[in-house]
C-alpha cells in the first residue's frame, strides 16, 4: 500500500469512530455557539470590539475542540490496546501520523466552518485571508495535536499531560491566524504555511521514534 492509502485508511477509521460518538458535534459546537453569542451580545454596542473579539473566541474554541478530539482519540486507541494493533500491522509510522492529522483536521474544519458562519452573523463576513488563515491554522493545530497525541499515547501518559505539552507548541497558530485576518496576510499567511509544513515534516519523520517502545 502507498503512504497515501495507509494514511487515508487510518483517517477513515478515526472519522468513523467520531461519527459514532458525535463527541465533537455534541459538546464543542453548542459551547462555541453559546460563547460567541454571549460575547457578541456583550460587545454589541461596539462593532469594532466585536470584530476583534470574535476571532479570538473562535480560536479558543478550536483549541478546546482539538484537546477534546485528541482525548476522544486517546480513549479509542487505549481501550483494548487498539493502538498497539495498529503499530503491529505492517503500516508506515508516518502513515499513522498523517492519517491522524487528516482525521483531526477534518473534524476541526467542521468546527471552523460553524464558527465562521457564527462570526459572519455577528461580526460580518470574514475576509478571504481570514478564511485561508482559518483553514491553514486548523491544519497546523491538527499536525501539532496528532504528534503530541501519539507521543502521550505511546508513553502511556495520563490524559492531562497532552494539553500541557501541546498547547505551548500550538500557541503560534491562533496568533498567526488572527494577525492574518486583521489585514497583514502577506506576512502571516506564509508563516502559518511554514509552521504547518515544518510540523508535518517533523511529525512524519519522528513518528517512528515517537511510537517505538
Amino acid at each position: 500500500m502507498t503512504l497515501f492509502t495507509e494514511a487515508t485508511a487510518v483517517a477513515a477509521k478515526d472519522l468513523r469512530i467520531e461519527a459514532r460518538g458525535h463527541r465533537i458535534a455534541g459538546s464543542v459546537l453548542p459551547l462555541a455557539g453559546a460563547l460567541i453569542v454571549a460575547f457578541a451580545v456583550v460587545a454589541a454596542p461596539d462593532p469594532a470590539r466585536t470584530a476583534q473579539t470574535v476571532p479570538a473566541l473562535g480560536w479558543i474554541t478550536v483549541v478546546f475542540a482539538t484537546v477534546l478530539a485528541l482525548k476522544r482519540a486517546h480513549d479509542a486507541e487505549s481501550e483494548d490496546g487498539a493502538l498497539e494493533g495498529l503499530l503491529l500491522a505492517p503500516v508506515r509510522r508516518s502513515a499513522i501520523y498523517l492519517g491522524k492529522v487528516l482525521a483531526l483536521a477534518a473534524e476541526l474544519l467542521v468546527v471552523q466552518a460553524v464558527l465562521l458562519v457564527a462570526a459572519a452573523v455577528f461580526a460580518g463576513p470574514p475576509s478571504v485571508a481570514g478564511i485561508t488563515a482559518a483553514i491553514l491554522g486548523t491544519v497546523g493545530l491538527a499536525a501539532v495535536g496528532a504528534l503530541f497525541g501519539l507521543m502521550t499515547e505511546s508513553a502511556h501518559a495520563r490524559g492531562a499531560t497532552l494539553p500541557l505539552l501541546m498547547l505551548p507548541a500550538a500557541a503560534p497558530v491562533p496568533v498567526f491566524a488572527i494577525k492574518a485576518g486583521e489585514g497583514h496576510a502577506g506576512l502571516w499567511l506564509p508563516l502559518i504555511l511554514l509552521f504547518d509544513a515544518g510540523v508535518l515534516a517533523v511529525g512524519a519523520l519522528a513518528a517512528r521514534h515517537v511510537v517505538e517502545d
Binding site: 477509521k13 469512530i17 459514532r20 460518538g21 483494548d80 487498539a82
Partner: peptide, 11 residues
C-alpha cells in the same frame, strides 16, 4: 494475540 484484543470498541 495477547491479553488485549486490540479492537476498536466503537466499531
Amino acid at each position: 494475540i495477547g491479553d488485549t484484543t486490540r479492537c476498536y470498541l466503537d466499531l
